[in-house]
Amino acid sequence: MAPLLTLDKVSKYRKNPEWLFEGITAQVQAGERIALLGTSGQGKSTLLRIVSLLGKLDAGALVLQGRTSSEWKPEEWRRSVCYVAQTPIMLTGTVERNLRAVSELQGKPFDEALARRCMEGVGLGHIDWSKEAESLSGGEKQRTALARTLLLRSPLLLLDETTSSLDPKSKRQVEQFLSAWCSEEGTAFIWVTHDLEQARQVSGRVWFMAEGRLLEQSATEAFFTNPGSEQARSFLDNQHAPEQEDAGHE
């Protein structure tokens, strides 16, 4: 089956000629759920921004549905490859204006039922849509931004620590809703997260970035039970260590 998205030797300079990451080659199949892991500073968010054409690609190529990024109109690419930033930015105005943004930008009628379903799915069914979006809490903004993006019904989501401001219960709710959404809509995602439990729960594959490269692309369970590189083993040990220390103190 032809891949939905192909990253072909994607590279980014930290500062020319020093690479932040180099030669990232990978594929995303339709409906595939990928967790992108790695320590801070590896360029995971930068990679997502490049894939969504919000960042500069210094070398390599991106291919979506068989066409390179230069063959797409940027706005059409971004409607198919939707980036949800870690820090949510609310558009000026009400929650409703934010939810209507996608349909207004495309000149299409607003699907209110779908918007309500998305807001309820992310745990914001109780929110008054006439409220100023800027007055929402950090977690509410993050979930509104996610619901707003889902309205695009894109085949690929790029989620950058999308639940970082949420409490554990809300986090689980968003994970469950996204899983159900992806199953129903056939949506794929690349989800940057530092929450290993979350990565394990939501993904079918793990991409692991270290030393400026994509060191591993493996099935999620295989990655967690038997990582293929020393760097991944060390990463998992370090991520688990604080939890074990905490458990020891209890």
Binding site: L54, R78, V84, A85, V102, A145
Partner: peptide
Amino acid sequence: ETLLALGA
């Protein structure tokens, strides 16, 4: 950038 990400 938010608007661009929403397909503007």
